[in-house]
């Protein structure tokens, strides 16, 4: 699966959250692009990137309930009517669209009665409408509230949550989570220093056993339910 991450930020180098996310990018098939970092937008190249991606992530800080102006300019330049739906080829159909949005306000601000009095889902309405028009699948938004206040355990958690948002199969179920970890586990064990290899292999083996055991229980339960229905 190829994921295209399009970052919109007017001063990327000054953004600790964007730098953190860049350092957290998974090793998988991920293409990362900073929209404002390009002197001119090469429409053909941008459209090709979109065609080749299975999942497209728009990543930006929230400025006055919207993305920075750079993203709107990118939309207006790259997402031409003909490209998105005009010629009835629907090149984006079936692709997933995800939003990674950072906010300066805490989570509880984004609800009716909260300081912002609006939900993030409501704020994302124009982008969700675009996804719908392009026949894309809208992924649940990935918000990062007040990055600068995050403590180390929360930042550690953010690294993997972000990686999974970029590359894990949706929906975010235990089955899909297990598959994502299983896929990476052997490479992670291999890169451990020699003295940690045994522990790593043992952990991986118990993880696999647990996973198989859960599959078995799920099958048994399905059989029991089937018999009950008879």
């Amino acid at each position: 699966m190829t994921t295209l991450v399009l970052v919109s930020h007017p001063q990327l180098a000054d953004s600790t959250s964007q730098q953190f996310l860049k350092e957290s990018l998974p090793d998988d098939d991920v293409v990362w692009e900073h929209i404002e970092g390009q002197s001119t937008l090469d429409v053909t190249k941008e459209q090709d990137q979109l065609r080749h991606a299975d999942r497209i992530i728009l990543q930006f800080p929230l400025y006055w309930y919207a993305a920075p102006a750079g993203l709107k300019q990118w939309e207006d330049t790259v997402l031409t009517r003909t490209f998105v739906y005009g010629d009835h080829r629907d090149p984006l159909a079936g692709k997933e669209l995800g939003i990674v949005v950072t906010t300066g306000m805490p989570k509880q601000a984004f609800q009716r009665g909260g300081a912002e009095n609006v939900t993030l889902d409501a704020v994302m309405a124009p982008l969700a409408a675009l996804a719908h028009r392009a026949k894309m699948t809208w992924l649940p938004t990935f918000p990062i509230y007040q990055f600068s206040y995050l403590e180390e355990p929360e930042k550690l958690q953010l690294v993997i949550d972000y990686q999974r948002y970029l590359t894990q199969k949706q929906p975010d179920s235990l089955t899909n989570r297990q598959e994502w970890f299983a896929h990476r586990l052997s490479a992670m064990v291999d890169q451990l220093p020699a003295e940690q290899q045994t522990t790593g292999k043992l952990i991986a083996s118990i993880f696999d056993q647990n996973r198989a055991h859960l599959d078995q229980l799920t099958d048994t339960l399905a059989m029991i339910k089937e018999q009950e229905d008879d």
């Binding site: 957290s24 550690l156 958690q157 690294v159 235990l174 989570r177 990476r184 586990l185 992670m188 952990i203």
Partner: peptide, 17 residues
């Protein structure tokens, strides 16, 4: 940092299992 993050996140999945 990202390696530490991986193992700690795996611990949570094991707990969920």
């Amino acid at each position: 940092f990202t390696d530490r993050a991986f193992w700690l996140a795996l611990k949570q999945v094991v707990a969920e299992q």
